[in-house]
């Protein structure tokens, strides 16, 4: 769920998807779903000469189960926030249900539920948003 939220914050960003058949495709992330299936627009196959199979394809749907890596733009991912959210995910007994589309809001809703046990982290996060 957390990684699903990360992808949702990255829509309209340029990403490169490397598949398990060694195909690498770069494109604009248009949408993602719970299975981490990806929709890419304006795609470009990285090694075009070796893979002319997709010359006439401008946008595509990629099944999540065949993705090896997704290269994300570093400037659009807050790794600190991500680390905090991951740690919080481990300390709560139940799994988080993501109801908002951004990680920041996920963290806040989580804090609301766990205010008693996670007061130190509450303080540091409030500072971040200040």
């Amino acid at each position: 769920m957390l990684i699903f939220s990360v992808f949702k914050t990255l829509t309209d960003q340029q990403v490169t998807v490397e598949l398990k058949n060694d195909l690498s495709i770069t494109g604009v992330l248009k949408s993602v779903d719970q299975f981490l299936n990806i929709r890419l627009d304006s795609i470009k196959v990285l090694d075009e000469a070796r893979h002319p199979h997709m010359m006439a394809v401008k946008n595509c749907f990629i099944r999540g189960s065949v993705v090896r890596y997704v290269q994300l733009p570093a400037e659009h991912v807050d790794t600190q926030l991500l680390e905090d959210a991951t740690r919080r995910g481990r300390c709560t007994a139940k799994t988080m249900t993501v109801t908002k589309t951004t990680i920041a809001l996920t963290v806040l809703s989580d804090l609301w539920r766990d205010a008693q046990s996670c007061i130190p982290t509450l303080y540091s996060t409030i500072q971040v948003f200040h």
Binding site: N21, R50, M55, V57, R63, V66
Partner: peptide, 27 residues
């Protein structure tokens, strides 16, 4: 693995008999 929307105009313009490529590797 992947479903790509084919741009018919571009696809028509490609002469398939001239394309040489390795078959795609399996997953």
């Amino acid at each position: 693995v992947l479903i790509g929307e084919l741009d018919d105009a571009v696809d028509q313009s490609v002469d398939l008999s001239t394309v040489r490529a390795e078959p795609l590797p399996p997953i």
